[in-house]
């Protein structure tokens, strides 16, 4: 069975470490916030200038001056700090964020990522995604392995406009955990009940398959 959105988030959460500063993108990455292991402290960064994202506010706590990068009302945790956009992106661009998790349309064997624009469709903009992939050393991409029509999203070369080049080393898809190195995908783990053949058939880019591919445990 392919992983659910929550399971993808749970798998990503295993890459968290105590004391990490983490930036989570919109969608599945946001769910990682609910999967932080007990007893572990992580500080979530929102690129509009909040280091230390808290839960959504209660009705009485709602404050128009307190939002996250998705423009939704939010609170700050104890020990948070609030800065300007340029200071926020200095954290990002300067490589101070320990882990960045974001979604993508496509990734390729060179570590390129396409995530912000599909030609012919309305262009909404890259927001902070280009800064995030250029500035972070430790990035995890979450995505479905293939489109609804069975077309692979793990390619030899991205076909859509790029968000960044040579920056992605880890992908958690609904079928597998894959690493990128030396111009190849390396299959590391498979989703429970998903066969290696299934993953191979839905991976268009060159994929290295070891003799034993462990199954993820949940």
């Amino acid at each position: 069975m392919a992983l659910t959105r929550e399971q993808i988030a749970m798998r990503v959460a295993r890459e968290l470490q105590d004391g990490f500063y983490v930036n989570l993108g919109i969608g599945i990455p946001t769910l990682v916030a609910n999967c932080v292991p007990k007893g572990m402290d992580v500080m979530l960064q929102s690129e509009n200038g909040l280091l230390g994202i808290g839960p959504y506010p209660t009705e009485v706590q709602v404050d128009a001056d307190m939002i996250n990068a998705g423009k939704a009302t939010v609170t700050a945790v104890k020990g948070a700090s609030i800065v300007s956009s340029s200071d926020s992106f200095a954290m990002i661009r300067g490589g101070h964020i320990d882990l960045t998790v974001l979604g993508a349309f496509e990734v390729d064997v060179l570590g390129n990522i396409a995530s912000y624009m599909i030609p012919g469709r309305m262009v909404k903009g890259m927001g902070g995604a280009m800064d995030l992939v250029a500035g972070a050393d430790n990035i995890i991409v979450t995505m479905t392995h293939a489109s609804k029509h069975g077309e692979s999203k793990l390619l030899n070369r991205c076909t859509l406009p790029l968000t960044g080049v040579g920056c992605i080393k880890k992908v958690v898809s609904d079928l597998a955990y894959v690493e990128i190195a030396d111009g190849k995908f390396w299959l590391k783990e498979r989703a429970p009940g998903v066969s290696v053949d299934q993953i191979v058939s839905l991976t268009k880019g060159e994929l290295v398959v070891p003799d034993v591919v462990p199954e993820m445990q949940f």
Binding site: P55, P57, T58, V62, A64, I67, G70, K71, A72, T73
Partner: peptide, 9 residues
């Protein structure tokens, strides 16, 4: 001070 996305718990 309009709020674009009002999310509450």
């Amino acid at each position: 001070k309009r709020i674009e996305q009002r999310l509450v718990r």
